[in-house]
């Protein structure tokens, strides 16, 4: 399966989180439920696909493109 960054997913697509490459924002993301191994779905996108809103661990979370960029995921078919 292909590993891409979360920012490349379109609205409605789901994936499994592999790892978070940015050490600094990773703690905040983990707190909010973005854990490696969890399923993540892109739910909403503002114009220019930035920020996007993802569903993970039962929460709806808004992130900027940069932050989504640091989350590596495995796309689910």
């Amino acid at each position: 399966m292909k590993i891409v960054s979360l920012s490349e997913l379109r609205v409605g697509e789901s994936a499994i989180i592999e790892e978070i490459t940015d050490q600094w924002s990773s703690i905040k993301l983990i707190e909010m439920g973005c854990l490696p191994g969890e399923k993540v779905t892109v739910k909403l996108a503002a114009p220019f696909h930035d920020p996007i809103a993802i569903e993970v661990c039962g929460n709806l979370i808004s992130l900027r493109k940069d932050e989504a960029h640091s989350i590596l995921v495995k796309i689910l078919p």
């Binding site: 924002s25 905040k28 808004s62």
Partner: peptide, 11 residues
């Protein structure tokens, strides 16, 4: 200061 905008969209 590094900025992030990680925000919960509550129910």
């Amino acid at each position: 200061e590094k900025q992030y905008f990680i925000l919960e969209l509550p129910v």
